[in-house]
Design a protein around this nucleic acid. Structure first.
Lengths: 234, 234
DNA sequence: ATGCACATTCTAACAGTGTTAGATAAATGG
DNA sequence: CCATTTATCTAACACTGTTAGAATGTGCAT
């Protein structure tokens, strides 16, 4: 059992490094993140960190994976909390939880979607599965809403573009792609739509033009729900 | 006239520095941008650049302002090319030009909306007016469409949230805010919506889930036009 | 308990980075 | 021709990620 303790200690040090990195990011932004700063705060030196992460890129990738997981958990929890309600309420809950997490963790969110480190190149094959997890929550909501007849698709979404039908056919088998095409499609456009609002809000680009971003987002979520044909239950 | 020539030479050097920086960004990404690299390629040394830009932040800000201008000009040109047509076609032209520019200049676009340099803090008061220019093109299209009765607003956009009405009232006087509230609002949600698609596409996050991003974007632009109540002319 | 193996951490160094100070060369104006 | 300004240089400082190699310490078996 001793080797276990050794492994556990190693794991704990890895976690401490990541926590320290997150603290520095939160305090000083991406500019404050450096191996020497992390090491100093932990009472060690920079080269020592190389026994836990192969490079600062690997460390950042680990932070990104954690952040994706945290976001996915927030989104999944929001959905679970209203799981008994209809698709409209579930979508609204997920949308607001998504934005809430982004607003509460701006640096993490920019880590995920803002590519804020110049030397850092995102290994998409690694991070994409983590990114997909939140997407699947949304797609599942749509799939169940379709199944239960809660959706009255408007004309523009009745028939998907043939190129996309073909592309989605080719993607069957990939995780999460056992869902109906319409669910995947509606989830994709919902994601993109809300993502745009969140990004512009995080960069303070939409506030000066519209004034009240809370009201804007809430109104757009309502509009989205209507426009995909989700009928508010009860 | 000699002082003129001196100023002109100074201006030309500034332009050469920016051009070199852009070339390095295009060739090697944000990681390849450094004062020493720029200076070396120009046959001078890094400290010499400080007579043209107070810091590398100032240089990046200048690049961003130029990029915003370039994007705005692309968008304005696309609108002007179909100025005689109705609002639906103009909005479609602007949307596709916007995306086209982002796809063709991914690094510049991330410079504008991705905050890719950690030491760099965007001076929003400086860059925001440049960012607004493209927005105003969209808002103007909506304003004219409303004026000409080309828009049949759906129920969800007939009445704007009272918080936003108040906020927009408070913003009257700001450049571009002499436009009707509905024009500003519809432009904002259109912007955010398309921005989300473009960002997710640039990060290759939506392609693996939907397959054909060209078809997706085109279809979403059509859906947007329908959903804001723009009636295709003719 | 001794010795071996390994995990961990250190120091020193290299090649970069932005930036400042101060000297130097070039161009302009009186 | 001289004085002043503009432009550019070299040297240096305090950083950065990273590697090599030595010095610790920990854990296990004999």
């Amino acid at each position: 059992m001793h080797p276990d303790r050794r492994d556990r200690r190693r794991f704990e040090t890895r976690e401490e490094i990541k926590d320290t990195a997150r603290a520095l990011l939160a305090e000083q932004g991406a500019a404050g993140l450096s191996l020497r700063a992390i090491a100093k705060r932990m009472g060690m030196t920079a080269p020592g960190l190389y026994h836990y992460f192969g490079s600062i890129n690997d460390l950042i990738t680990a932070l990104i994976l954690d952040a994706f997981t945290q976001l996915a958990e927030a989104v999944e929890k929001a959905d679970a909390d209203v799981a008994s309600r209809g698709g409209a309420e579930r979508l609204a809950a997920v949308a607001h939880a998504w934005r809430r997490w982004a607003i509460d963790h701006p640096i993490d969110f920019q880590l995920l979607y803002g590519n804020p480190i110049p030397t850092y190149e995102q290994p998409t094959d690694t991070t994409y599965p983590a990114a997909r997890r939140s997407f699947i929550v949304t797609a599942t909501i749509f799939a169940q809403a379709i199944e239960r007849g809660e959706i009255d698709l408007p004309e523009e979404y009745r028939r998907l573009p043939p190129e996309i039908e073909r592309a989605l056919d080719a993607l069957t088998g990939v995780e999460g792609h056992d869902l109906p095409h319409h669910a995947l499609y509606l989830a994709a456009i919902s994601w993109a739509r809300l993502h745009g609002h969140i990004m512009l809000e995080l960069f303070h680009l939409i506030q000066p033009v519209i004034g009240d971003v809370d009201a804007l987002f809430a109104h757009e979520v309502d509009a989205l729900i209507r426009q995909v044909g989700l009928t508010p239950t009860e």
